[in-house]
Design a protein around this nucleic acid. Structure first.
Lengths: 305, 305
DNA sequence: CAAAATGCATATCTATTGGATATGGATCGA
DNA sequence: TCGATCCATATCCAATAGATATGCATTTTG
């Protein structure tokens, strides 16, 4: 059976044109090298070297073989390197999901940008869905990780890492009486008891929706849900159209939203939009490990700052 | 040190998704296979397989490696095959030379055509030169073989194989008085004693030139050499222009030669153009062996016919 | 021209290691 | 819970890669 050893030896002998010298270079003695070369020639069934009085030289068949052997040896090194890089998470692919409200958060976009820079050989794929759908996708290994909101339910088999809590803002039409007043003043949730509320809710699973309803109840009223939108951005359009007000994560205020004004909520409302990363329990793959590294470093930096 | 064995094993395990089953397929037991896989993983420095309760499955790094390993194993087979084919003379290159007078001989063109058909993977290269130059090129290994005329000098280190003797014809302008008579009748060399002779001679080395002069002397006269041309074809042009007559190998008569008529010579003239193959002494390379095989078969066929 | 040197091949021995057998331990299905 | 499945570990054996010693052919050198 031909082994890489035979290729390495044949290449060395071809380069030296000399068995004894090649043996020295390979760190073995001359006789074993002679034997291995002969064994290779026998396996191939053709002489690769012409034995000259002052050394050896390649036959035409030898040249054909050695030229290819060189490439093969290089390919083996490349294969090993590829495996190492893949293992270290510098190469491969990573499927990431996020809820629409997380997609615009600077933390998430920052992580993504850093991934692109630090590991350009990783092919990233993104998916937007509701928290519930994302959790399901992660469980089913369709996603490697997902940025989700309100990790309320602790799911078996998943690791959910809390990243940060984001303030929530009240979005009101800009002609709304409250938008006229000092927008820096915080208002209480209760002050919005009579306003028609527009909420974002995906067909499936939990999300910010429930947190908002719960917070209103805690503030002593039951919100009047005027509309439900399936995309977060449409929520804001409806607000701009004057159909009601809404409560959205702070990062949403970054979107171009003419016709919408944002009001800060009283801290007592206790309404925050948590951002968390969900992934399968167990050791992370190389590419996922790479992502986790970046995420945890940024969480730490954030805490320090 | 990573060996092809490791690649073969990794590919087998990846394909079966099962160490025990793969071991059976490889004709070894399960424990050594487990060991070899582990050794490979250690050498690479990354796990290639995830041990599952019901078998094993590739990690991302494993997939990256095994995909390449498959190609490498195929390349090794291809390298072996290429060496075998080259050795058998089905592949490689062959530099062949011939004198201008041999280039048109049907024997030579026939051999070349057969080479192309039988061993299309051999890259043929041709060179035209005088017999002397060709002999030199063969000695210096710039040519693998050469079709030459008059192997008069036995050169040390070369094997010169006589292939056939070709009749020589007298080329005369078609308005020449002799061309009017019965062209099938043979004439004697002596009858041409008074004709101005146009001969072909390369700057270097012996050739047909000397044979012709010698034959004339044997016929009892010294030829009047009117012109010397450096290309055989120009010789015929000069004949057509009426500058004199010439003596050329029969195969030259195949060229389109308006204005030239050919006369057969008396056998007593003993003027023949021998065709021989010159090559280095010693065992022939694969590609050259291929040529020699075709040549010798055709010589034999010719003798039989 | 003889002697030394060079360089591959052969012969024999040793040490490494690939592979076999036996067994343990974890997980899964009945 | 018991047996089946399947990988890992431990130990042993056998094949073979490689070491040492030597032979043989050719070439260089004094």
């Amino acid at each position: 059976m031909i082994e890489l050893r035979h290729l390495r030896y044949a290449v060395a002998v071809a380069e030296e044109g000399h068995i004894t010298r090649a043996a020295a270079g390979l760190g073995i003695q001359q006789p074993p090298l002679s034997q291995q070369i002969r064994a290779l020639e026998t396996a191939i069934g053709a002489p690769l070297f012409r034995r000259q009085p002052r050394g050896v030289e390649l036959t035409a068949a030898g040249r054909a073989f050695v030229d290819r052997a060189r490439l093969i040896l290089r390919d083996v090194d490349l294969a090993v390197e590829a495996a190492r890089r893949t293992s270290r998470g510098e190469e491969g692919q990573l499927a990431i999901g996020f809820t629409s409200s997380a997609a615009f958060h600077p933390f998430v976009t920052g992580v993504m940008r850093e991934m692109r820079e630090r590991a350009p050989a990783i092919t990233l794929s993104f998916e937007e869905a509701s928290t519930g759908e994302l959790i399901e996708a992660v469980e089913a290994d369709r996603l490697d990780a997902a940025f989700v909101r309100s990790p309320s339910e602790r799911l078996e088999g998943l690791t959910i890492t809390h990243l940060l809590d984001e303030e929530m803002l009240v979005a009101v039409p800009d002609h709304h009486p409250r938008a006229r007043k000092d927008t820096r003043r915080r208002i209480s949730l209760a002050a919005l008891a009579d306003e028609p509320l527009i909420l974002y809710r995906r067909p499936t699973g939990p999300g910010l929706y429930d947190s908002i309803i719960a917070a209103c109840r805690a503030a002593g009223f039951s919100p009047k849900v005027a509309q439900e939108a399936t995309r977060m951005v449409s929520t804001l359009s409806l607000v701009a159209a004057g159909l009601g007000i809404s409560i959205v994560p702070e990062s949403m205020a970054r979107l171009e939203t003419t016709g919408v004004a944002y009001l800060r909520l009283d801290r007592a409302a206790g309404l925050v939009a948590p951002l968390a990363l969900a992934r399968k329990k167990g050791p992370a793959s190389g590419t996922l490990g790479r992502l986790l590294g970046i995420v945890s470093r940024r969480v730490k930096d954030r805490a320090g700052a």
